[in-house]
Design a binder for these strands. Structure first.
Lengths: 143, 143
DNA sequence: CCTATATCAGGCTAACTGAAATTT
DNA sequence: CAAATTTCAGTTGGCCTGATATAG
């Protein structure tokens, strides 16, 4: 009661996210990629090609914003879009080999930022934090 | 390795923060207050008056942004600013009685949003999450 | 006819950058 | 003179809203 902020998960998670974002920016200086590009490429690499609407829902990204990010990634030949033959409203997005290479490079940066962020925690605490955060999320990030 | 995103705390905490922010917005519709106002008022109420620079550091808010937020809170007579007599560069910020009342109201909203956010977790998991997140933060939120 | 999908145009706000004025 | 504090002006990026064209 006497220390509201340290009790409010809403506040804590917001500030932790800001701190994390700053660490990512440190790693990403000079890399013309966005943090969202990482999420998109990682999702496509790990879960396979996807329709844009489903991809947006999985990543908690707005569908109209995803269009922009995919435009950028497509211009860099890191993803491909093709119309779904069974439903021509949809476009199926897939990662390219160039996208795989970029992802590998980004993953190194994100791993380093992750290590900075988690440095105050022990190994068991890190996995426990990941488990708890995953339970919070409305989208299904699990396999 | 096969599921990058669910392994990256950087990504998880960012998406959890977005989800939390949406829940706060649901609660705050119609309330002319910002989320940052809550943090400022709560910090001043729980830890007492503070110099702007220290307050900004504690809350992980940019110093120039804090100026704007304090202008708004001051216009609503929820905080007061006075020059520090021992160092006239500094201004000491304090919460007013009207600010206390607003904080009480905001705290109810934030508590409700917190409860939504944490609904997938058991009581012990909630306190564990708060503990872990607090350890991550560079600023000192503890008493 | 209604719904779903991708796309586009525009707005909002938190966060950031850089610089000025004042005081130590 | 150099450093700290508050303040101001302007930019960026992520998120959001509403609308359109196309397809089921």
């Amino acid at each position: 009661m006497t220390h509201r902020l340290s009790d409010r998960a809403i506040w804590l998670v917001g500030r932790a996210s800001l701190h994390a974002h700053r660490l990512v920016q440190e790693q990403m200086t000079g890399s013309a990629q966005r943090k969202q590009h990482y999420g998109i490429l990682a999702s496509l690499a790990d879960k396979g090609p996807a329709v844009q609407a489903h991809l947006a829902d999985r990543l908690l990204i707005d569908r109209s914003d995803l269009v922009t990010y995919l435009d950028e990634l497509e211009a860099a030949k890191q993803i491909s879009r093709r119309t779904d033959p069974t439903d021509r409203r949809r476009k199926i997005v897939a990662i390219t080999s160039r996208g795989q290479a970029t992802l590998k490079r980004l993953d190194t940066l994100m791993y380093a930022a992750d290590d900075d962020l988690l440095s105050p925690l022990k190994a068991e605490e890190r996995t426990e934090l990941a488990r708890l955060l995953t339970k919070l999320l409305p989208s299904d990030l699990a396999p």
